[in-house]
Design a protein around this nucleic acid. Structure first.
Length: 267
DNA sequence: ATGCCAGGATGATCCTGA
């Protein structure tokens, strides 16, 4: 089974590329982030025509996550238990954002995750990000405690660069989110709960990234960040036979600023 | 070393992104 994750930065503007990529990449399950649309705007028919079942959650032009699967898609869950809410401005009641969707695909519990950005080190959004990650850690910890052999994949855009060589120049990020101690600690706690970055062993650094800013020639200069991850439970991690970051897909007109990340699992 | 910001809202400019 081939499992992929991809922050597409708007599914409506990327649908042609996603469809073409699906047709040549032969993935069974694709987790999407930043679809940037409401459910009724998601182009689900064209993915169904390719043989994929579809689950999507999106409330507005922000966030939005989806799962496409051609190996079954059941027990869809929108958000994980305890997922924090967010209010964009004071006086507005906090609401659950479209940042997590889970389903069972081919026997694997797959979660498509779009971790909050954090914005700046002093922004309340960073605290939201940390609380969101801690709530995810608590839920994920519970899944493994219930069943040590659970096959769980936490995949998506984590908006964290866990190590210094996950960015092209750490000195540029000295006052930035994504590399701060509390963010890295929150990421580490998910790892310590028993989830493994199964991609890194097959794509060793330095200089290996999943995201490149559109500005300042970041992609041709090879100045990126490794912030998209597939974290697998122990039983699932044992099945991994290969992984790749599809850097080719970042090239050309109309590319997302993130590349797809693909994991190959033994049957 | 594949190219010098993109997308989506609202109504020419603001918000978000990492």
């Amino acid at each position: 089974m081939r499992l992929a994750t991809w922050n597409v930065n708007s599914i409506r503007s990327r649908a042609d590329r996603v469809e073409a990529w699906l047709q040549r990449s032969d993935v069974d399950v694709l987790a999407l982030q930043e679809t940037k649309c409401k459910d009724e705007q998601f182009p689900e028919d064209r993915f169904r025509a390719l043989g994929y079942d579809v689950a999507h959650v999106g409330h507005s032009q922000w966030n939005g996550v989806a799962l496409l699967s051609r190996v079954g898609l059941t027990d869809v869950e929108v958000g994980f238990p305890g997922m924090p809410s967010w209010s964009s401005k004071e006086g507005v009641e906090p609401a659950s954002e479209a940042r997590a969707i889970g389903a069972t695909c081919g026997g694997v519990r797959v979660w498509s995750l779009y971790v909050p950005n954090g914005r700046t080190l002093t922004d309340p959004h960073l605290q939201y990000k940390l609380e969101w990650l801690e709530a995810l850690r608590v839920s994920a910890d519970g899944w493994l405690n219930q069943d040590a052999e659970a096959q769980v994949a936490l995949v998506g855009d984590w908006n964290i660069a866990p190590q210094d060589d996950d960015v092209w120049d750490i000195s540029v990020f000295s006052h930035s989110t994504h590399v701060s101690e509390p963010e890295r600690a929150a990421f580490s706690r998910v790892i310590e709960a028993g989830f493994t970055d199964v991609v890194r062993p097959y794509t060793p650094g330095p200089g290996v990234y999943t995201y490149w800013d559109y500005t300042q020639l970041r992609f041709p200069r090879r100045e990126g960040m490794r912030i998209d991850f597939q974290l697998c439970s122990p039983a699932l991690a044992r099945r991994v036979t290969n992984a790749q970051i599809d850097r080719e897909e970042r090239k050309g007109k109309g590319a997302s600023d993130h590349a797809p990340v693909v994991v190959e699992l033994a049957d």
